[in-house]
Design a protein around this nucleic acid. Structure first.
Lengths: 66, 66
DNA sequence: TAAAAAAGCAATATATATATTGCATAATGT
DNA sequence: ACATTATGCAATATATATATTGCTTTTTTA
């Protein structure tokens, strides 16, 4: 579940709390997603994309690992 | 929750059941996702992408609706 | 046009994403 | 150094994604 949320958040100059508020979840949820310990829903992924102006592929794409 | 899963699945010449088997969920889950009545997890979205050789953006991107 | 296959759909059960609270640790600024 | 802010993390609670079963309706094909 690796992703680029943390990098994109920092580039957007947002704290975890600020991003959480923007997308309507708690700070913990953002923290766990950044750490790769959560499997977020598509809706939340999209909201994070909108919040930091990136696409799904930019933030969440992973080549298929065997 | 509109998406392009149904189109991509048909282009890949797969039934709902075959796609479900490929990605390890039930036919119902695929059906509801195609109908836009589910909010799938990122992991499942990625597995669907791999199964039909498309990207997240191709299958699941939606412009932010206000 | 009838049989077979595919898809829709409803109800209930289960697994897990997310919330909540609280505290510990790390980072940042003064 | 100290105060402040940001982040990590654990435990429990809740909401919801997904499974399961079974039946109906639609689509495909012979």
């Amino acid at each position: 579940m690796r992703n680029n949320v943390k990098m994109a958040r920092i580039q957007s100059d947002l704290t975890q709390q600020q991003l959480a508020d923007k997308v309507g979840v708690t700070r913990q949820t953002i923290s766990l997603i950044e750490k790769g310990k959560y499997n977020p829903t598509l809706k939340l992924c999209l909201e994070i994309c909108y919040a930091v102006n990136q696409s799904l592929d930019q933030l969440f794409w992973n080549d298929q690992e065997e």
